[in-house]
């Protein structure tokens, strides 16, 4: 077993973890370690290849990976240690140690004086919001689709309906359109937009993608792959209004219905 000790251990090297590491080091902490399960630093920013990052901090419009790089390049010179490809599986709070696994090192048992959890978010799923219907292929959370397209180089469908007007969903609507797919609707149950107005203008309006507020998907149909969804207007209690529903043919449904903190450790 690989054993080592640090003053501060930070789990997760997204923007939060990177910033935490840099500040911790800058205030004089001796031994700082960043532990990241992915093969690069940067977290979710690496798949956010759209611009719009850095306006406040750098007064520039950067893509996610560019923005991340501004932090990543400070890590080495500051003397912050990094463990990549290392997934933390357990925290032993009594002994102040974490347990992680790494392909080359095996189990890593790392002692800390302080521990920072910066593990990001996971996306809410279909199950979490209980959409009825069949269980075909072609239902993705927006971030999973973003990973397939931006990191792995694949398309996940041809005709899309997006549930939820969160920023990731709207950004994906534009991305998919640029990739030649047809986004037929963005459907939002609330009477207002979930994400930023800027994203509605730049990602939906500019591409003539219709947004339906106070609507939801009440059924997903399809045996092997999604074939269509049924969309309905909802009342003030978010219950579907009978008689307002209609079908939209599509082969893919993206869910952009919120994030949940990753806090299972």
């Amino acid at each position: 077993m690989f054993e080592t000790n640090y003053d501060v251990v930070i789990i997760g090297a997204g923007p939060a973890g990177l910033a935490a590491a840099i500040e911790t080091k800058k205030v004089g902490t001796q031994k700082v370690l960043l532990v990241e399960r992915d093969h690069t630093l940067g977290g979710i920013l690496q798949q956010c290849i759209h611009p719009g990052f850095g306006l406040h901090l750098f007064d520039e419009e950067l893509t996610g990976p560019e923005y991340a790089y501004r932090f990543i390049e400070q890590i080495k010179p500051l003397g912050i240690d990094v463990l990549l490809n290392t997934m933390v599986l357990d925290i032993d709070r009594d002994d102040n140690r974490i347990y992680a696994v790494n392909r080359d090192k095996g189990v890593c048992n790392i002692g800390y004086k302080s521990l920072v959890l910066a593990m990001g978010c996971r996306e809410r799923t279909r199950g979490a919001i209980a959409i009825p219907g069949t269980r075909p292929a072609g239902i993705f959370t927006a971030g999973t689709a973003q990973r397939y397209i931006n990191m792995q180089g694949y398309m996940v469908g041809k005709e899309f309906v997006i549930l939820g007007s969160g920023d990731i969903g709207m950004i994906m609507a534009r991305r998919l359109t640029l990739e030649g797919a047809k986004v037929k609707a963005v459907v939002e149950i609330m009477p207002y937009l979930a994400g930023l107005t800027r994203n509605k203008v730049q990602c939906l309006d500019d591409f003539d993608i219709p947004l339906y507020l106070r609507h939801t998907i009440i059924d997903i149909k399809g045996k092997d792959r999604v074939e269509k969804v049924t969309v309905s207007k909802v009342d003030d209690n978010f219950n579907p209004i009978k008689g307002t529903e209609w079908d939209i043919d599509c082969d893919t449904v993206l869910l952009s219905v919120g994030l949940i903190p990753e806090n299972e450790l």
Partner: peptide, 8 residues
């Protein structure tokens, strides 16, 4: 029930 529809 293929997951992907092709390369981007």
């Amino acid at each position: 029930s293929e997951i992907l529809t092709g390369p981007n």
